[in-house]
Computed example of a mutant assay.
Amino acid sequence: MSCHLQKSAFPPIYVGVVFLGFIPEHRCLSPGVAEVSSKCGWSLEEELNHTVPEWGNHEKSLTSQCWRYNMDWNMTGLSCTSPLENFTSHNSQSRVPLMHCEDGWVYNSSGTSIVTEFNLVCEDSWKLDLFQSCVNAGFFVGSISIGYIADRFGRKLCLLITILINSISGILMAFAPSYTWMVIFRLIQGLVSKGGWLTGYILIAEFVGLKYRRTVGIVYQAAFSVGLLVLAAVAYAIPHWRWLQLAVTLPNFFFLLYYWCLPESPRWLIAQKKNDKAMKVINRIAKGNGKKLPSSFQSLIPEEEDGEKHNPSFLDLVRTPQIRKHTFILMYTW
């Protein structure tokens, strides 16, 4: 159950960009427009029609979002009914020239996101895609490397380390002073979060027998769906991305309590020839379930040998025909 709860903390990293990177309606900030609008008594709709290019005909066009009129709204003698005609009458051009949003943007949103804070729109809209791509790249690298660490040093230790790094980097991201630091901390989260999820799945799968393995796997995935619902509710209540990031990250520190309540995988301990520790874990599980181990159970565990332990290797994925078949099937499926 504890590992299932840890799985529910994965959605903020996997799909958190939907809320952290929300893109509200926006337009260029034009200095002096607010003063002219106040002087002329324009409504918001009138202000947009007079001062935003193509707003009336193409409300969500790139022209209205990424360009503004290249004119001085502080000039005297502007007409409140047709301010652009007043400007063109003093120029040889029939149209008012346009310019990029050099003074920033105005966002129609009561909350904040990484888009509104770091202006990830127009020419910099690709930075939002990079933000999520870094997470996915971290998933790829972390899934490979952390799987090896879990085989080499144990499932429990690997799970605790990934939870700690994920929590710390999530907190640092909430206080990131720039876009660059935010992407770095998000990449770190990607490196450890997917690997931690895989480690948790391996741990619970090794605790149960074949009869219940499918059931616990389904419940483990169901926790992800529950996490999605909780994330949506929290994001609705907290519309500011830094506070939202803190709200979904701080609970992760509670999972560090696994150190005292979560045992190591007995299967891994047996593979590492730590039979005494494995038996302690098995006896603890049996006691918790109100069961008594049969006297013949000890004989099922192979005797400890003085030879060297088998260290995990990526070649283990293709060492035997059966494992090789499963490896290629999983690679194709993903």
Rank of each mutant, 00 (worst) to 15 (best):
S2Q: 05
Q6I: 13
Q6W: 06
S8L: 10
F10I: 14
Y14D: 06
V17C: 01
V18L: 04
F19R: 03
G21Q: 06
H26W: 10
P31Y: 07
A34H: 06
S37R: 04
L48W: 12
H50N: 08
E54G: 12
H58A: 15
H58V: 09
K60L: 14
S61V: 08
S61P: 00
S61Q: 08
S64I: 07
W67A: 08
M71L: 12
G77D: 01
S82G: 03
N86H: 05
S92M: 07
M99A: 14
D103S: 12
W105N: 06
T112D: 03
T112P: 05
I114L: 13
V115S: 07
D129T: 14
C134M: 15
A137T: 11
G138Q: 09
G142K: 05
I144V: 03
D151L: 09
R152L: 15
R155H: 11
L157E: 04
C158E: 09
L159C: 08
I163F: 07
L164W: 12
I165K: 04
S167E: 11
S169V: 12
G170C: 05
I171D: 08
L172P: 07
S178G: 05
V183E: 00
G190R: 01
G195R: 01
T199C: 11
I204K: 06
L210N: 12
V216Q: 08
Y220V: 10
Y220F: 15
S225P: 01
L229D: 08
A233T: 15
A233D: 13
W243K: 05
P251Q: 10
F254S: 12
F255C: 10
S265W: 09
S265G: 11
I270H: 11
I270L: 13
I270W: 11
K277E: 15
K277W: 11
K277Q: 15
M279F: 10
M279S: 08
G288Q: 14
Q298C: 08
K309E: 12
I329V: 02
I329S: 03
W334E: 01
